[in-house]
């Protein structure tokens, strides 16, 4: 697969190479910009925070820093599942603040060229807000949904966080 990517790149030398971290969520595969990912950790003890939106799982202690945790499945309105050995928290840099996202599994870092990103079709993976989908990557054997997590929370939701 790596080879095919290189070929693609050779075709279009203007394209920049993007590195993505891919993760799984309810059968589908997603990708986020590797530069936004700070670290990937196993599930620690999460302290519940009352009176927050249902997808805010709580906060964790990340080496002395308190980091809020979002459950991706709940956020995207997918069926909830038990955490297992594969479950991971991806700690991301969101506009300078750390935030953790619970995902089913983190698979790999892949490289793609910008030209491979296609605009997302009208309806994708039922229920996921269109806002944060930056596009899809359609490769021979896989379909990857590219997320822009900074657009994950609408303005209203951000207000909800801070204005409740």
């Amino acid at each position: 697969m790596q080879n095919s990517l290189v070929v693609v790149k050779a075709d279009d030398s203007h394209d920049e190479l993007i590195q993505l971290v891919s993760f799984n969520l309810d059968q589908e595969e997603y990708g986020v910009d590797v530069l936004k990912v700070r670290e990937i950790i196993r599930m620690p003890i999460i302290t519940r925070v009352p009176n927050t939106p249902h997808y805010v799982e709580g906060v964790i202690n990340l080496r002395g820093k308190v980091v809020p945790i979002i459950c991706m499945r709940k956020k995207f309105g997918l069926i909830e599942s038990e955490n297992d050995k594969q479950t991971r928290i991806m700690v991301m840099d969101m506009d300078g603040e750390l935030m953790g996202f619970i995902v089913d599994a983190v698979s790999e870092v892949i490289r793609i060229s910008g030209s491979e990103i296609q605009p997302s079709p009208a309806v994708v993976a039922g229920g996921i807000d269109q806002e944060c989908i930056a596009g899809v990557i359609n490769q021979a054997e896989r379909l990857l949904v590219l997320l822009n997590l900074e657009k994950m929370f609408s303005r209203d939701e951000k207000n909800l966080f801070t204005g409740m």
Binding site: V56, K65, V66, M94, G163, M164
Partner: peptide, 11 residues
């Protein structure tokens, strides 16, 4: 410790 911007104003 602060809860960060996102959770700053929980009543």
């Amino acid at each position: 410790k602060s809860l960060g911007n996102y959770l700053a104003n929980i009543p």
